[in-house]
Design a protein around this nucleic acid. Structure first.
Lengths: 245, 245
DNA sequence: CGCCGCGTTGAGATATTTCAAAAACTGTGG
DNA sequence: CCACAGTTTTTGAAATATCTCAACGCGGCG
């Protein structure tokens, strides 16, 4: 369901994730206003609702305002391949720009609110807002860099550890409770993203638990021994984006 | 060794890879001229020379004019992790923008020529060249999309097949001889990129050869049965970037 | 010629997946 | 509040894919 941002009191100026999103440094106050003028609508979703589907005409980029999402494709055998999970402040469909349609589908993992960014107008705005343009480039570049690490790891334990550390970092960056991974993501989704059997993921999580590195309760994972998890994940170093602009 | 582009008669206007690079559609003629003015130098390298190293100050983006390159990191155990191979028309270090330093190292796989793009000046130019800006965004977006597929494939045969098909597509897109993969890449580098043991890659290549899907000779791979290779690679579909702007 | 880097091959060790079945949890309706 | 159906998680054991180790071959080059 689409709603008016203004009516809901939503604006980049009051958004707690603005610094991670398009309104982050070096975007200027004036550019932020121009951006705000462009973003009139939010998309309000229930868990499981689609944001867009592969091959649909691409009209919007979506910035996560609240909740969690994933993007994925279905292959010719009907199998799902999850590419990424998206947290508040993240932007969806950055990989579809050269096409006029989405190259993957996206779905809400929880109830969610997404700011709708009309892509044509946005691209036209950028030349008049040089710092916003830089911000956008940085976001894309950062995504490239962040996406590549985990997939280079072949060992399953390391891969799971690297995934958890990366997620923890991103959650904490967004001021979620520290040392806690609260994602409405089933182990099934997680194993899909990591490209391994879900039984394997399950076994590894339990192994980590029995070593008292993590504690699993319901849908939450508490990180008890972060140092050890980081060591397990290495070679993998998390690069932050916040202060590095 | 750095040389003057003009002295060598190098310009985007005469470059056969311009349409795949920054000068590609929708960049205008006028913008191409502005771009050319910015790119005064080429870097001329011998096989094995470094282009940049991780953590070095980032001053340039590099566009491959001739030859082949790779980028990689060395982890704390001293192991190399190759992220990608770069062909003429490709741009290196797109993943390092938000940092003021390179997040990986890059090296020439053959003798090579690279156009040096002063990154600060380039970013300052973009707002005055809206179509060039779009082109740059498309290149980044395309890279994201292209990088993600192969890594999602777990099965080793499929992964090798997907890698070969992707490479073949990119080479043909650049008018290299059809159905032929000529890269100065050892099976060792290839297996590293794919994240598998080099013996495994070797065995799979031989298996493909005994099925008469490919023919390996010296450093070249001839693709004899492209259809079958594509089928093996599936689920994997190559998206082109050329006409899709 | 002989060395060196790269490619080839085999066999055993190991990691991971697959299959199968049980247990725990979730949400729904009575 | 409980029973039930559906989903997700847990666990074990066997099957398989992949890696590791080790040895050998080949071809180019000084």
């Amino acid at each position: 369901m689409q709603k008016d941002r203004a009516n809901l009191g939503i604006s980049c100026n009051t958004c707690q994730y603005a610094h991670l999103c398009l309104a982050g440094s070096p975007t200027s106050e004036k550019e932020k206003d121009l951006l705000n003028d462009l973003l009139s609508k939010v998309l309000i979703l229930n868990k499981g609702d689609h944001i867009y589907r592969e091959n649909e005409k691409m009209s919007y980029l979506y910035a996560v305002k609240q909740g969690f999402c994933k993007d994925y494709c279905i292959d010719e055998n009907g199998n799902e391949h999850i590419y990424n999970f998206y947290l508040p402040g993240d932007i969806l469909s950055l990989d579809s720009l050269p096409y006029h349609k989405y190259t993957s589908s996206a779905i809400a993992l929880s109830d969610a609110k997404l700011c709708m960014i009309p892509v044509d107008k946005f691209l036209d705005l950028l030349p008049t807002a040089p710092n916003l343009m830089k911000r956008f480039l940085h976001i894309m570049s950062y995504k490239m860099q962040n996406d590549r690490h985990v997939h280079k790891i072949t060992n399953t334990k390391k891969r799971v550890a690297a995934f958890l550390i990366n997620l923890l970092f991103r959650l904490e960056e967004r001021k979620f409770p520290p040392n806690r991974i609260t994602l409405p993501v089933s182990q099934f989704d997680m194993s899909n993203l990591l490209g391994m059997a879900y039984e394997t993921v399950n076994r590894i999580l339990h192994q980590f638990q029995s070593k008292e590195i993590i504690k699993i309760s319901h849908k939450e994972i508490f990180v008890l021994d972060r140092k050890q998890l980081e060591d397990l994940a290495s070679p993998y170093h998390v690069h932050g984006q916040v202060e590095l602009v």
